Every structure is written in structure tokens, then in C-alpha cells.
Computed example of a mutant assay.
Amino acid sequence: MKVRAQIPTADNCNNFSIATGSETAVGTTLDNLKAAIGGETGASAKYAAFAKAAKEQGYDQIARLFEATSAAEQIHIGLEYALVSEVEPDFEKPTAPDCSDEATDLNLISGACGEIYETSDMYPAFIKKAQEEGNAKAVQVFTRAKLAESVHAERYLAAYNDLDAADDDAFYLCPICGYIHKGEDFEKCPICFCPKATFTAF
């Protein structure tokens, strides 16, 4: 993802269309925040299971990618939970489900499919509703998650295509929005402009 002159938003980007035949159930923004927390909780647990499987199958770099993405989903959960807590202080996060795994190549495809759904369907639908309700905080949280998920999908597909040609590059996780960069060649997050020095390496 290229760094632009301005931080990307739902108003200055052209890739926020909702997928044709959207499968996302859209409620109020509060409902949508809770649904996103549930979805991200499941994704984080799934990627943690996939990381363990990748390590056991001898794919150390891919294990690190899954670990980084699991941590990224936790960032999204935290942002969404903070907004829900402003309205419902007693709201409890859902329990992470038990997750199974398969061969690492199939786990990468599963992960990519989930991230593509979130970036092309779920989050655009939630962003539209938050815009209709005038909830600027939710628009920003959903937007940053949506943009990060598209990069997660890209990382998974790249890892799938290079499954038998891995390198030693590290993955770097933005602590603000959950963007993941592969390799050392960057200065800041292209989504929220957070500086490289604050990123966590995997």
C-alpha cells in the first residue's frame, strides 16, 4: 500500500463500495460495532491457531505473519470495544471460539477470503451506516480496519503464492490501525501515518 499525501478516509478514497449481493446484516452503528468485535475475535483466534499450525508444518515466516495478523485483529477489537463502552460500559467482549486448522496453504486462502469479505463487504456497509448516523468516531475506526484488512488479504495471498520460496523478511505491525508491512522499506504507516519506530516486529 502506497503512502499518500493525505491520510486515507472514507471521503477521499474510491475503494469503499459495498460488494454486490452483500451478505452483511447491518443494524445500528452500535450493533455493527458489536458484530465487528465478534468477527474480529473469531479472526484473531483463527489466525493464532493457523500460526501454531504453520510453525508445526515448518513455515516459520508464515507463522509470524499469522501472529502479526492475530495481533492486528486485537487492535481492531480494542478500538471497536472502546466505542461500544462509551454507550454500554458493562458490555462484555465475546469469548474467542475454538478454532481448527488445515494445511498452511489452505489456511492462507481461508484467511485471505475472510479479510476480503471484511474489506469489500462488512466494513464498507458498516461505514455507510455510521456516516448516515453521523458517527464520525465509528467511521474512522471502521475505515482504518477496512484498509488494514485489505493489506492483510494481500499479505496472505503473497505468502500463498510464495509458499515454496519464502524469504527472511520480518513483518511490522502498526500499533494504531493494524496495518502490516513486510520488510524494512518504509517510514510510516500508509493508513494512519504512525511512524515506523513505533511498529512491532514479528
Score class of each variant (00 low, 15 high):
K34T: 00
K34W: 03
A35E: 12
A35P: 04
G38I: 02
G39P: 02
E40T: 05
T41E: 02
G42P: 02
A43Q: 00
S44L: 08
Y47Q: 07
Y47V: 01
A48V: 02
A48Q: 06
A49C: 09
A49V: 09
F50W: 12
A51C: 04
A51G: 05
A51E: 06
A51S: 10
A53D: 12
A53P: 06
A54E: 13
K55W: 09
Q57E: 15
Y59D: 12
Y59W: 13
D60E: 13
D60A: 07
I62E: 03
I62H: 00
A63W: 01
A63Q: 09
L65A: 00
L65T: 00
F66G: 02
A68M: 02
A68H: 00
T69W: 00
T69L: 03
S70W: 03
S70H: 03
A71R: 05
A71Q: 06
Q74Y: 05
Q74L: 13
Q74C: 10
H76K: 01
L79H: 15
L79N: 15
L79I: 12
E80H: 07
Y81N: 13
Y81L: 12
Y81E: 15
A82L: 04
A82R: 06
V84H: 14
V84C: 15
E86M: 15
E86G: 15
E86V: 14
E88R: 06
P89K: 13
D90V: 14
F91S: 08
T95E: 14
T95K: 10
A96V: 07
D98G: 07
C99L: 07
S100R: 14
D101P: 11
E102M: 11
E102Y: 11
T104A: 10
D105N: 12
D105G: 06
D105K: 07
L106K: 15
L106F: 13
N107C: 11
N107Q: 11
S110L: 12
S110K: 13
S110T: 13
A112H: 05
G114Q: 04
E115N: 07
E115C: 05
I116E: 04
I116V: 10
E118S: 03
S120D: 12
D121A: 02
M122F: 03
M122Y: 02
Y123L: 06
A125S: 07
A125M: 03
F126C: 09
I127C: 03
K128G: 04
K129M: 14
Q131T: 10
E132S: 10
E133L: 07
G134E: 08
G134L: 02
G134D: 05
A136P: 05
A136Y: 06
K137F: 01
A138C: 08
V139F: 00
